[in-house]
């Protein structure tokens, strides 16, 4: 996938992984990897970026004698997802047109 395109999409994927409930780094990667290529080192800056933009909040929970950082989606984060869906409706329209034109090739 084109790097620029992926950058836009992967943020939304991470937000969606939090939509059904708060989650932590490792679980986010496990939940997303069937759908998009993601690794520990790529997730870190994404979470940081989303937190700085106010799309996620973080809190720490004790787990097996250590602290685990949890992420939860904010209203702004949910707004980002619906913006994305709206935007992609127009992308899909264009995609359908392109596919229709090229279907015989």
């Amino acid at each position: 996938m084109d790097a620029q395109l992926k950058r836009g999409i992967i943020d939304i994927c991470v937000l969606c992984a939090l939509k059904s409930g708060d989650s932590y780094g490792y679980k986010i990667i496990k939940d997303l990897s069937p759908h998009i290529e993601i690794s520990e080192s790529t997730l870190y800056p994404i979470l940081k970026r989303l937190e700085a933009a106010g799309c996620v909040k973080t809190f720490k929970v004790e787990h097996n004698g250590r602290l685990r950082k949890y992420y939860s989606i904010t209203e702004a984060g949910k707004g980002r997802i619906s913006d994305f869906l709206d935007e992609w409706n127009s992308v899909k329209k264009a995609y359908n047109y392109i596919k229709e034109v090229c279907k015989d090739e």
Binding site: Y24, S39, E40, S41, Y44, N64, L67, K69
Partner: peptide, 28 residues
């Protein structure tokens, strides 16, 4: 913050059944 993040990632991998070496190699 960065070190904590990677520490947690490695711990979670180990908890998921990987041994320490594999978990460390897994995060790159």
């Amino acid at each position: 913050r960065s070190v904590d993040y990677y520490s947690e990632m490695i711990d979670d991998r180990i908890e998921d059944g990987e041994d320490e070496e594999t978990a460390v190699a897994g995060v790159g």
